[in-house]
Simulated scan of single mutants.
Amino acid sequence: MRPVTLRTARLTLDEPRLADAELVTEYCQDPLFERYLTTPWPYTRADADAFLGSYVPESWASGRELTWAIRGADGGPVMGMISVREAQHELGFWLGAAHRGSGLMSEAATAVTEWVLAGGIRGATSLMWRAVEGNTASARVARAAGFRRIEPAAPTVPTRDGGTLPAWHAVRTEPVDPRVDESWRPILGGDR
Rank of each mutant, 00 (worst) to 15 (best):
I187Q: 09
V157C: 04
G80L: 10
W94L: 12
I70H: 04
A124C: 02
V141C: 06
T164W: 11
E86W: 12
A46R: 15
G134D: 03
R185F: 14
L95F: 04
E114K: 07
H99M: 11
V180R: 06
A131F: 02
F93H: 03
S59Q: 14
E86F: 11
M81I: 10
L95G: 04
E107G: 08
P178V: 05
G162T: 01
R148L: 10
V78F: 06
R185T: 15
G76A: 05
P175N: 05
L6S: 03
G103T: 04
T173V: 14
E133T: 12
G163Y: 11
S138C: 02
A167M: 01
M79Y: 09
V180L: 06
E22W: 12
E58S: 15
P77Y: 08
A109S: 05
R148N: 01
Y43R: 06
G53C: 09
G120Q: 04
M105I: 04
I121N: 07
V78C: 06
S102G: 15
M79G: 11
C28Q: 14
S59C: 14
R149V: 08
G101I: 03
P77V: 13
A142C: 02
R149H: 02
V176I: 15
A167K: 00
A167I: 02
E34C: 13
D30E: 10
D177N: 11
M105Q: 02
L91R: 00
T113C: 12
S59P: 13
P40A: 06
R7T: 14
D47T: 00
A139R: 01
T156E: 13
P31H: 09
A145R: 00
T67F: 02
A118C: 01
R7E: 13
T5C: 12
